[in-house]
């Protein structure tokens, strides 16, 4: 009972703060709402008997990644009005798609009995040992690929933003491509 209450409370927190993330005009507020969303997700992981994943979520996503995002937000230094037109143009399109998606999920959820215990949920992911075994064993290739992916992400951002740039006045285009 208490688990169910905790689950739904955290889930509601996650949804509300996710909505907050995409509706704020001030990017700093968006970032703070994102922190709240990530922390509620960490709580959800904890409630789903995966304390290690919860801890990693707090350390990596809510900690390190958020610091980076806040750095970027503060360095780009655009006022709330500068963000406005683009936010609205995309939010309508994405909102319609998200609504359609949620409708499908709800129909499925109502038509089908709630999630039965799936073969996956057996408390496999509680210990760092198991996780380490996966990362260095069966999923070693995927793990290495993820490293390449991060390198590619950094390279992509650098080539679009700065590399080989001459003095130019159309900096706005770059920022639009970046954000």
């Amino acid at each position: 009972m208490i688990e169910a209450i905790l689950f739904y409370f955290l889930a509601a927190c996650a949804v509300v703060s996710a909505v907050g993330t995409i509706t704020r005009i001030n990017p700093l507020m968006s970032a703070l709402w994102l922190v709240a969303a990530l922390l509620s997700l960490a709580g959800l992981y904890g409630a789903l008997a995966a304390p290690l994943v919860a801890a990693i979520q707090v350390i990596v996503a809510a900690g390190a990644v958020m610091v980076l995002i806040l750095f970027v937000v503060m360095m780009t230094d655009r006022g709330p009005e500068g963000m406005r037109p683009r936010a609205i143009r995309f939010s309508k399109m994405l909102g319609a798609l998200a609504a359609a998606y949620l409708a499908i999920v709800m129909i499925v959820a109502v038509a089908v009995p709630p999630f039965v215990a799936s073969p996956a949920s057996g408390g496999y992911y509680e210990s760092p040992v198991t996780l380490g075994g996966f990362v260095a064993g069966k999923y070693a290739a995927a793990f290495e690929l993820a490293g390449v992916m991060l390198l590619v992400a950094a390279l992509s951002v650098i080539t679009i933003a700065k590399w080989g740039e001459r003095t130019r006045s159309d900096d706005d285009d770059c920022e639009e491509a970046l954000s």
Binding site: V148, L151, V152, L155, S156, I158, T159, W163, G164, E165
Partner: peptide, 11 residues
């Protein structure tokens, strides 16, 4: 022709 282009194609 700026650096990074062929690196991106290779990746």
């Amino acid at each position: 022709a700026r650096p990074g282009y062929y690196g991106l194609i290779a990746f």
